[in-house]
């Protein structure tokens, strides 16, 4: 009986793992910045949210994603709501893409992800620059978009492995 309970807790934790990872990543800004590589950065939450909402993962609650955005804004020091808007827009983009896709294809997903990230970073840059008068380096945004795009394909491999485990 005890064994069964442990198994139950573990499977619950396992099924909630993506959302837990999302909260850890926004609280911790999982981006290897301590390596001090010039301009190097990527947006892990974007990858995570895009993949799991595209796959319509049942434990990936939109409201929790929205909350994660608020936390991210607080940690980074951005005006509240910016990241929430970005994360929600990813959810909308994936939802739309899922509706129009009959046969899913990784490469198509990948390039659609690039389009979404470019769009979101542009929106972020515009809002911060025009409405909040933040000085930002455009190059950092471009490099961030590029690395987020590159890293997507790497993380997808791990996420697929995870989904396989979750389905089993």
């Amino acid at each position: 009986m005890a064994k069964l309970t442990t198994k139950g807790t573990f499977s619950k934790l396992y099924s909630w793992f993506p959302i837990i990872l999302l909260f850890i990543s926004v609280l911790n800004e999982f981006d290897f910045n301590y390596l001090n590589l010039d301009f190097f950065s990527f947006n892990f939450p974007f990858i995570l949210i895009f993949f799991f909402t595209l796959k319509d993962f049942k434990h990936f609650d939109f409201f929790l994603v929205f909350l994660a955005g608020l936390i991210n804004d607080t940690v980074v020091g951005l005006p509240l709501g910016i990241s929430s808007l970005s994360y929600t827009l990813i959810c909308i983009a994936t939802s739309y893409f899922r509706n129009i896709t009959i046969r899913p294809n990784l490469i198509k997903d990948w390039f659609y992800f690039l389009l979404v990230v470019c769009l979101l970073n542009s929106i972020n840059f515009t809002i911060l620059n025009l409405f909040f008068s933040y000085n930002l380096v455009l190059m950092s945004y471009l490099v961030n978009t590029f690395f987020t795009f590159i890293f997507y394909i790497i993380f997808v491999y791990f996420f697929k492995y995870y989904l396989k485990g979750a389905n089993d």
Partner: peptide, 26 residues
């Protein structure tokens, strides 16, 4: 329309609500 308004059984809020909420918070 489906992307904005349709919410699956697990979701408590539609994405359109969350977008408006985000803009309101901003």
């Amino acid at each position: 329309r489906s992307a904005f308004l349709k919410k699956s059984t697990q979701q408590k809020f539609s994405l359109l609500t969350l977008v408006f909420l985000s803009i309101f918070i901003i």
